[in-house]
């Protein structure tokens, strides 16, 4: 009986420690978001979105150039990576048995695991060294390489969920396979595919490391792909480690915008996307 009481107490203690673990786990999330809400939202003003940086020492100015730069490079990178990623994902789900697909799946796994800073080095060697200048193009390529494996994986997971009988129904109608893939399978899952793409893009929008020595950054508006270009994450970094209080304030504002953007896209995607595909995708992408 004594033994039994001991077991019951141990059970209670165990359950209690699990709840403590959950609190400890959530605490950083709450602390980070509330810190950003407090400091970031308070630092945010219209200037942040509409003005360029002012010379060092003067207060004021904004991050218009960095916001546009991020949009520019993320768009350029997506244009390169998304079509390739979708084709790769479709190939894996529809022709996923052969040697090439096995190799591609392995390569996708490897690419997802590569630290983003190394992707930055690669884009540097590929585009900064030969052209002897930091450039928006090299930044976009780096982001593309980050987006690519995520899109391949998410689209593969989504399309794999299409039941076999739907493919067979299409083939039984006398449609060639590529038409079945394009007009039945892909078209029927456009919204899920789109959400997967959005998640990949959201993730890339927050990346700093691969842009540090590719796009590098600047303090003015620039639209040339062959010149350095500012981006929101790099600008946040530069301002954060600077000694100027006003810059630090802007860096909080930038982080606030970034966190709202990324979490917004993530939450939105979770409610749009097929829950089962999402689960598979998250399982693999968080690994």
């Amino acid at each position: 009986m004594n033994q039994f009481k001991f077991r019951k107490v141990r059970n209670k203690l165990f359950l209690f420690s699990l709840s403590i673990a959950a609190v400890v786990c959530l605490a950083p999330l709450i602390m980070v978001t509330s810190f950003m809400l407090q400091k970031g939202a308070a630092s945010l003003d219209l200037d942040f979105f509409t003005k360029l940086p002012v010379p060092v020492g003067e207060a004021g100015g904004g991050m218009l150039h960095a916001i546009l730069g991020t949009i520019y490079m993320v768009t350029l990178g997506s244009l390169m990576a998304v079509p390739l990623g979708l084709i790769g994902g479709i190939y894996l789900s529809e022709y996923g048995k052969g040697g090439i697909s096995k190799a591609l799946r392995l390569a996708t796994d490897v690419m997802t695991g590569i630290p983003s800073i190394i992707i930055g080095i690669f884009a540097y060697i590929l585009l900064v060294v030969p052209f002897k200048s930091f450039s928006a193009l090299s930044g976009a390529v780096a982001l593309a390489i980050i987006i690519l494996p995520v899109v391949i994986r998410s689209s593969e997971e989504i399309l794999k969920l299409v039941p076999k009988h739907i493919r067979e129904a299409g083939l039984a109608l006398g449609l060639p396979r590529w038409k079945v893939i394009l007009f039945i399978i892909v078209r029927g899952n456009l919204s899920a595919l789109f959400t997967g793409v959005m998640l990949a893009i959201a993730r890339a929008s927050g990346e700093t490391a691969p842009l540090l020595f590719t796009a590098f950054g600047n303090m003015y508006l620039s639209y040339s792909p062959m010149e350095p270009m500012a981006s929101l994450p790099v600008q946040i970094y530069t301002y954060a480690i600077s000694p100027f209080e006003d810059w630090q304030r802007q860096s909080w504002a930038g982080a606030f915008v970034l966190i709202i953007l990324v979490i917004g896209v993530n939450l939105g995607a979770r409610f749009l996307m097929n829950p089962k595909a999402l689960k598979n995708f998250l399982k693999r992408s968080s690994s």
Binding site: P28, L29, V32, G206, E207, I236, A240, L258, N266, L267
Partner: peptide, 18 residues
């Protein structure tokens, strides 16, 4: 918990620093 994974690294860095 999964939302933690969505927060960009730079935001954690900023929070860590200040």
């Amino acid at each position: 918990v999964e939302m933690i994974a969505a927060i960009p690294s730079i935001v954690f860095g900023l929070w860590g620093l200040f």
